[in-house]
Design a protein around this nucleic acid. Structure first.
Lengths: 209, 209
DNA sequence: GGTTGTGGTAATCGGATGATAACTAGCGGT
DNA sequence: ACCGCTAGTTATCATCCGATTACCACAACC
């Protein structure tokens, strides 16, 4: 009974590691093409495994998407929670930073993981689906209730914050930054939507393969 | 050369009428299930024609979606333009109504045609698509430029207005109203998002088949 | 050094789906 | 009456995709 943790030294990987890899790949693919547009084969190739393995690991494509949704929400809430702590510390140090501002900063950071926010949005557009719909609604509730209960926002603040978030997600989904140089109106809109972090967003766009 | 307009009295319909019917049906179906999730067969059944006819009428599913997108944008701009005129008339009469408020009112009215706004949102999530992406970006630009040039909004106003619109679209896509009675948080959020027209939205939900 | 369990893959199937081809029928003009 | 054009259909194809089955291989443990 040594109970050693397998080190993944050889050609094979531990199942939970591989699972995390597949979830990451699936997040990207689902974010890019949406639930119906994504194929389990594309996820498998992105993760470097075979297509049947992806399906068997999660039971079905639908279950995989739910897992992606849950993971995305977990990460989102972690980011928010960290932002709240960060704000508390700043306030304790005499700073006058608002929670909303601080969370917003960290939210923009999440745009770096394009798949995460887009997978969420894709789920939000599938409210009519009998399985995904309820899960997506529960996800939105979870976010809203966090903002109200843990971030100390009022109903109006929370709603406004979510509206900004949906706008940013939409602009990312549209790949609006692709037209930043070419279209003056796009430049103006993005300058307004991302007052501080715009160079960050553009660098992400250019870093794409 | 009588040049009479065929009256569609018999079993057959004029092509442009049928085309409008199919476009309306496609708007609903694409809005519900997204571009990839929608099938040309579902569109055909909703329009009461055969599946091959739908495909041949537009050339491809992709072209049909682009047509749906264009029609949705046309209707959206018409609604906005009417709201601007309405505001001008109110201001001339001594009223102090803001354009933003008036457009927002009319926008909420568009929620009645659920497919219209949802088809737009579905397009906005497909920015990575080589054909749909550019069309969707052009659509968003068209809306923004109207708000800036014709509705007299500044960059900040236009951005804020769009953010509220994206939030409302998302809530509709989520079918969030389904949880209005059951979940207090949802009730609070919807009360905040739709201060005046909430009963209208709920009546729409209940009117569904 | 076999044996057992875990981490995979190759082969394949069946249903769904977009598209095409070939054909049919209503309607107006002469 | 028949002729040509427009509005439609039925039948069918080729492809894609999620899922299943059966099999393979590495590694730990006795």
């Amino acid at each position: 009974m040594k109970m050693t943790v397998p080190e993944t030294t050889g050609t094979r990987m531990r199942a939970d590691e591989r699972r995390a890899l597949v979830l990451e790949a699936a997040t990207q693919v689902f974010g890019e093409r949406g639930y119906h547009g994504a194929t389990t084969d594309a996820v498998a190739r992105a993760a470097g495994v075979s297509q049947p393995y992806v399906v068997r690991m999660f039971g079905s494509k639908e279950a995989l998407f739910i897992a992606v949704l849950d993971r995305a929400l977990d990460r989102l809430m972690d980011t928010f929670a960290a932002a709240v702590e960060q704000t508390d510390a700043a306030v304790a140090a005499g700073d006058t930073e608002t929670v909303t501002h601080c969370i917003a900063q960290n939210y923009v950071g999440l745009l770096g993981d394009r798949g995460l926010l887009l997978s969420l949005m894709q789920a939000f557009m599938l409210g009519a689906d009998p399985v995904i719909g309820p899960a997506a609604r529960a996800g939105m509730r979870r976010v809203y209730e966090f903002l109200r209960a843990n971030a100390g926002m009022g109903p109006g603040e929370a709603h406004e914050f979510l509206a900004m978030g949906m706008m940013l997600n939409t602009l990312v989904g549209l790949r609006m930054a692709d037209d930043y140089e070419r279209e003056p109106a796009v430049r103006e809109l993005l300058d307004e939507a991302l007052p501080t972090k715009l160079d960050f967003l553009l660098s992400l766009r250019d870093a794409e393969s």
